[in-house]
Write a protein that binds this DNA or RNA. Structure first.
Length: 492
RNA sequence: CGGGAUGUAGCGUAGCCCGGUUAUCGCGCCUGGUUUGGGACCAGGAGGUCGCAAGUUCGAAUCUUGCCAUCCCGACCA
């Protein structure tokens, strides 16, 4: 029919695009590399955002908002950070358009309106924020500063993909300032935990917590902690990062404070972020050839009710039964939609809500009402069952939790099955080519070795897992001694 | 940004090689009616700058050039 999906086996990338577009999460826009997030997709983002925001606030953070524009002189202050992002910055050079004298009805950039100093559209906000923090911080009593902002950023990527890599994306970025190194590191790790908890418990996507190697580190960071997830095609996806920035930004922006001993010290910093990319992770971790599968806890819609009408006289009977159910579900905090639109028949609706990944579908007609039951279909397993109307709302509430657990367990089993150890180079290459997933292998700790492995296999070190088991071995490429395995994978 | 492919109505397409009436078909959309337990049926109807811009030609969806967009593969990246 009209919404035929490409199967994962046929073309994984096309399948992903089909889900995003036909599932009405987002669409391409008139702007290169930028997407329109549609209401269904935005509702998902709102649920994710609201939960994260709550978790940030529970850990003592507050929200603020900083400008979209960063004066070039500020942007270049922290050299490594500026260098890291320089190649993908959009830059504002003028502030006015005027009528084109040679082409009626068209506009041109007014050459008279050139800015004294170019404005970089933020690819990340460390620069503008640390420039601001300078005026906020004088004493140790002003610390810590625990600020988060929800914002859009722009990174002029060469090759974009819906949600996974768009030129403009939505995210949150936390920027904290601390009096001591220990406190900053603790904050970095704490936020990594918040991300891991959110992604696993709400998005039902299992993650590996780890630390990045120097090559993969955020530009300007001393250490980058990350959570890595595994997609169904065996590729890894970085789902969130938390950076310990040391005193790099404090020094670049001269942010010092007077400590208890009346001595000037540079402030210690962290930054951490997750973006709309998480939606890409969600899609690729759970969905199937019939469409999206939304984890109940953040699903834009948790329950859909489809009436099976038989003749005009059945409508008021069914509608009345449903209105009670809707009220019961809402009382339990469950989002529900009664789709009694008459322009689509039940079969069409079933397929549509499966495509959109609504966790639970309730169908009922006169036949069911006579028997005091409904037909309940769960999206994760596609199982259908007949369930009593008595206590149905509570039953569904429990079922939603069961679905949440089930899709997490399923993704966890898949992830665990796809972490394999390689002890030789041939084994390593064979696993990457034929099995995908993570490969745990010894590495000598040398960035050049890492680079060579990347050149030869396209696999990168996703992370060195936290609490990694220490075992001596030999680097798969060089044979040099190694004290632990690291996780390699091909990644998005 | 380099290599490859594609672009015809909201979606999927035929026509293009070999230029020539009113651009094909299906889905969707609108109106009316009958329907409704896995993507309904009948009747009538609307919808097109053939990606955009030049060029060749009496005439361009069709030939030429440039540009744009999307997808795949690379490089880069969250």
């Amino acid at each position: 029919m009209s919404k035929e999906l490409t199967s994962r086996a046929t073309d994984y990338s096309q399948w992903y695009n089909d889900l995003v577009i036909k599932g009405e999460l987002a669409d391409y826009s008139a702007v290169r590399g930028c997407m329109v997030i549609k209401p269904y997709g935005y509702a998902l983002w709102e649920n994710m955002r609201d939960q994260l925001d709550k978790m940030f606030k529970e850990t003592g953070h507050v929200n603020a908002y900083f400008p979209l524009f960063v004066p070039k002189s500020l942007f270049e202050a922290e050299e490594k950070n500026a260098e890291g992002f320089a190649k993908e910055c959009a830059v504002v050079t003028h502030y006015r358009l005027k009528n084109d004298p040679n082409n009626k009805g068209k506009l041109i950039v007014d050459p008279e309106a050139k800015l004294e100093e170019e404005l970089v559209i933020r690819p990340t906000s460390e620069a503008i924020i640390w420039n601001t923090y300078k005026s906020w911080i004088q004493s140790y009593r002003d610390l810590p500063i625990l600020v988060n902002q929800w914002a859009n950023v722009v990174r002029w990527e060469m090759r974009t993909r819906l949600f996974l890599r768009t030129a403009e994306f939505l995210w949150q970025e936390g920027h904290t300032a601390h009096a001591t190194k220990e406190e900053a590191i603790e904050e970095t790790k704490k936020m990594l935990e918040v991300y891991a908890t959110f992604v696993e418990e709400y998005m039902a996507v299992p993650v590996i917590k780890g630390v990045k190697t120097a090559n993969e580190r955020f530009a300007g960071a001393e250490d980058t902690y990350c959570i890595e997830a595994l997609m169904q095609d065996g590729k890894a996806l970085q789902a969130g990062t938390s950076h310990f920035l040391g005193q790099n930004f404090a020094k670049a922006f001269d942010v010092q404070f007077l400590n208890k001993e009346n001595k000037q010290e540079y402030v210690w910093a962290t930054s951490w972020g997750v973006s709309t990319r998480l939606i890409g992770a969600l899609i690729m971790a759970h969905s199937d050839d019939q469409g999206l599968i939304m984890p109940p806890r953040i699903a834009p819609l948790q329950v859909v009710i489809v009436p099976i009408y038989k003749g005009e006289e059945s409508k008021p009977v069914i509608d009345e039964k449903v209105s009670t159910l809707v009220k019961d579900l809402k009382a339990l905090g469950i989002s529900v939609k009664y789709d009694n639109s008459e322009n689509a028949r039940p079969g069409w609706k079933f397929a549509e809500y499966e495509l959109k990944g609504v966790p639970v579908r309730v169908a009922l007609g006169l036949r069911d009402i006579e028997n005091n039951v409904v037909e309940l279909a769960r999206r994760d397993t596609k199982e259908k069952s007949s369930v009593s109307i008595d206590g149905l709302a509570t039953y569904i509430k429990n079922l939603l939790e069961e679905i949440q657990q089930n899709i997490f367990n399923r993704a966890l089993a898949f992830r665990n099955e796809n972490i394999r150890e390689a002890n030789t180079w041939d084994e390593f290459v064979d696993l990457l080519d034929n099995k995908a997933g993570f490969v745990a292998a010894h590495w000598d700790g040398n960035p050049e070795t890492e680079e060579k492995i990347k050149e030869q296999t396209k696999a990168t070190i996703r992370c060195i897992p936290l609490d990694n088991k220490q075992e001596s071995g030999k680097c798969i490429l060089t044979g040099n001694p190694s004290s632990q395995r690291v996780l390699f994978a091909r990644a998005y």
